[in-house]
Computed example of a mutant assay.
Amino acid sequence: MLLQTDRLLLRRFRAGDAPALAAYRSDPDVARYQGWDAPFPLDAAERFVAAVGERDPRAEGWFQYAIERRGDGALVGDVGVNRHDEGRQAELGFTLAPGFQRQGYAAEAVRRVVDHLLLEEGLHRVHASLDARNDRSARLLERLAFRREAYEIQSQFWKGEWTDDVRYAVLASEWSRS
């Protein structure tokens, strides 16, 4: 376990997580705004889990936190952190399994990761980039005091179509007051 909240453990992925990861990443609604296509085969999930389980969460590049529900150990989803700018900034991404959406788990997990990055580790800024049609993720970031910084029209060619991109961010100085 790396981070925790009242209801969640944010930890490294383990081999046993691959079936649940493959299941939620295979849902077309979950995959719609993400960088993979559905279905997400079990062998791809096994490779992903093996690769991310070895990464250093403090190193530059992507680290993926598995979100586990305390008590029953269910894999709720994941939060990705891409550290860059010599560790001063990070990009954030998050995915929740359909059966765990709309229960506050995403906000709880993202809030804990951002607390860790900005308040405990002293990063300067955390940002996220979303497909403009991803209203639920945009609302979550806005509830967590992220600021919408840009709306780029047809700036991404994504899964066969031009899409609008929305960028959100929060500075450590802003987060400490939230």
Rank of each mutant, 00 (worst) to 15 (best):
A150E: 08
G93F: 00
L117Q: 04
G73W: 05
E121R: 09
D131T: 11
L123F: 07
E120G: 04
E54P: 03
R102N: 12
R55F: 07
S137R: 00
L144M: 02
L141V: 07
L75K: 03
P98D: 14
A107D: 03
E149P: 10
F40G: 00
R111P: 06
L117A: 04
T95M: 01
D85Y: 04
L96G: 05
R102W: 11
L42G: 02
R143L: 12
H116P: 01
V52D: 10
L123Q: 06
Q89P: 05
A109Y: 00
T95Q: 00
R148M: 08
A66K: 06
A145C: 13
A90S: 00
N134R: 04
Q89K: 13
V81Q: 05
R83D: 02
V52L: 07
L96M: 12
F94E: 05
F63M: 12
I153V: 15
R88F: 10
R139E: 09
H127L: 15
V110R: 02
N82W: 03
E54S: 12
A132S: 12
G87H: 15
L123T: 04
P57C: 08
R136A: 15
Y105F: 13
A59M: 08
A150D: 08
D43K: 00
H127M: 15
R111Y: 11
V114L: 09
L130V: 10
Y151L: 14
E121S: 04
H127W: 15
H124K: 01
L140F: 02
R88G: 13
A132H: 09
G93S: 05
A59Y: 12
A50E: 11
D85P: 04
R47P: 10
A150R: 06
A59V: 08
R139C: 03
F48K: 00
D131F: 12
G61F: 14
F146H: 06
L117M: 00
Y65S: 13
A50C: 05
E60Y: 06
S129W: 13
A106V: 04
F100T: 03
A150T: 08
R47C: 06
V126E: 08
A38P: 10
D43C: 02
A138K: 02
F48E: 01
L118C: 02
V79F: 12
R55N: 07
V76G: 04
Q101P: 12
F146M: 02
A128D: 06
Q89S: 15
W62I: 14
P41N: 07
G77C: 13
R70Y: 03
G93A: 07
A51T: 09
V110L: 10
E108Y: 01
Y105R: 01
F63Q: 12
R58Y: 14
E142D: 07
A106F: 07
G53E: 05
A51I: 02
L96W: 04
R148A: 06
